[in-house]
């Protein structure tokens, strides 16, 4: 219905030294939509996310985020995006409150020696309310459960008022009920807040039903399109090299109004 694209990738090739991480990837993602990127380990999923963030210089090709080149207009393009890194990469040595973590992303944009304004704090509160973690405002991050930590990191991404969320393996090391809660949350963001959600996962099962688009990656773009067109045995066989059984869970992505608790 609209011709705004959240992401436009053209002929993207990324190399780490001699090793090809991504080869000749091209795709367009409409805004708003829910994209799930799947593929086996080492298939370049994270590399693609980082390239979209402008953190990796590609060998060839271009990436535009909301019509801005992620390398030439890096700052502007990044301001459109909230990023949720893999939780395993985050240090728990730093004693830091939930609220300060969510504030972090916003303050990072102002440069050194800035104090948060009332508006910043308000945005932090809104973001924490959205993920259902506002009661944990004063808690130390390392004292939270995996799922709670994940939601705080999503709140940090939301606090920067993004048009698009990029999430790297948001379901790793969280239990199934928490997985569903997070998925519901993301689905509602896309539906109610018109935020484009792009997530990378190695486990496609829970996400199929929520996704507008699925991308199967194995260094090359194996398939990209609507779930029904992509989730086919022969395509999955091509990506993973072995037969992968997909079970469609019905009714995982029900829309909830207001509260995000299932």
């Amino acid at each position: 219905m609209s011709n705004t694209y959240a992401i436009v990738v053209e002929n993207l090739t990324v190399k780490y030294g001699e090793e090809v991480a991504l080869e000749d990837i091209s795709f367009k993602l409409e805004h708003p939509s829910f994209l799930t990127i799947i593929g086996p380990n080492g298939s370049g999923k994270t590399t693609l996310l980082k390239s979209v963030l402008g953190l990796i210089k590609p060998e060839k090709g271009s990436i535009k985020v909301f019509n801005m080149d992620v390398l030439k207009d890096a700052t502007k393009a990044r301001h459109m995006v909230g990023y949720v890194p893999q939780r395993e990469r985050i240090s728990t040595n730093v004693p830091i409150r939930v609220a300060d973590i969510v504030l972090m992303g916003r303050l990072a944009r102002y440069g050194p020696l800035t104090v948060p304004s009332k508006y910043d704090v308000e945005k932090v509160r809104e973001a924490l309310e959205l993920v259902g973690m506002v009661d944990f405002w004063d808690k130390r991050f390392s004292s939270l459960s995996g799922g709670q930590q994940q939601r705080v990191l999503i709140a940090r991404a939301l606090a920067v008022e993004p048009k698009m969320l990029l999430l790297d393996e948001p379901f790793s090391a969280v239990d199934i009920p928490t997985q569903r809660e997070i998925l519901n949350l993301l689905y509602n963001l896309r539906l109610q807040k018109n935020i484009t959600v792009v997530l990378v996962t190695h486990d496609v099962n829970p996400v199929v039903e929520c996704s507008d688009k699925i991308m199967i990656l194995n260094k090359k773009l194996i398939a990209y399109g609507k779930p029904d067109d992509v989730i086919k045995d022969d395509i999955l066989l091509k990506a993973y090299g072995v037969a992968v059984k997909i079970i469609a869970h019905e009714g995982i992505c029900y829309v909830l109004s207001g509260d995000t608790h299932a």
Binding site: V81, R89, A108, R156
Partner: peptide, 8 residues
Amino acid sequence: MEGATAYG
């Protein structure tokens, strides 16, 4: 560190 870079 990775998140910090992503947020500018």
